[in-house]
Write a protein that binds this DNA or RNA. Structure first.
Lengths: 105, 105
DNA sequence: CGTGCATATAAGAATTTTCTTATACATATA
DNA sequence: TATATGTATAAGAAAATTCTTATATGCACG
């Protein structure tokens, strides 16, 4: 069950991950300052489960990541997140190349 | 009833417009060659109403546009579309700037 | 007059996404 | 022992998106 690296599918998933106001605000706030989910939820004004859900989606698409941090007394327990350094350029030419590339194979 | 130019809202709408496989394929196919909705629907393998619906959304967001063409005998009747020359760069820094800019005002 | 091409829209169904609420666990502090 | 901080997940409700089907119009061709 390979994920069959389809350029179109991957692009759609990435766009979907970015097509939500809460998820965009998560990226923006983590860019301002890396923090953990609980603090982020409060800053966003949403429940922790909702923030966690959205962060899970962003992490899955590689748009944010857990960063190493100071563990106090051996236990991690607090996970700090930051955006990854992605750069996606969207233009009709790019979309053409990504979407119609594998049809020629 | 101004649309209140909210950077976040606009970005979400643009991302939503691009977060669909049919809409991305429309942009890709129109980039290869401008054409009209009916021909596009056939090439996509979807019904005309569905193609029309998706094109309407892309046009609304300014991602595709109707281009001028040879009108035979005064009547347009056939509308040819092409992608506009948008270029959207997505990075955490960009998202930060767009999303958190107006909060300082 | 029927068929193919071409446009546009609306209503309702089907599907997906989003959100809330509940549960569970662990640590620290008042 | 409550309360606050912190993590994680699942079930179901609510909302939004997507898709089909039907309707309507017009031109050209056989």
């Amino acid at each position: 069950m390979e994920p069959t690296d389809d350029g179109l599918q991957t692009l759609v998933k990435t766009m979907k991950a970015l097509a939500n106001p809460i998820r965009l605000r998560i990226i923006a706030l983590l860019e301002k300052e890396p923090k953990h989910a609980y603090a982020l939820a409060k800053e966003l004004g949403v429940s922790y489960p909702l923030a966690h859900l959205h962060m899970k989606g962003l992490k899955k698409m590689g748009l944010i990541e857990e960063i190493e941090q100071q563990e106090r007394e051996g236990l991690p327990s607090v996970k700090t997140y930051a955006p990854t350094d992605f750069e996606i350029v969207l233009s009709s030419k790019m979309i053409h190349d990504i979407v119609l590339k594998e049809e020629e194979e």
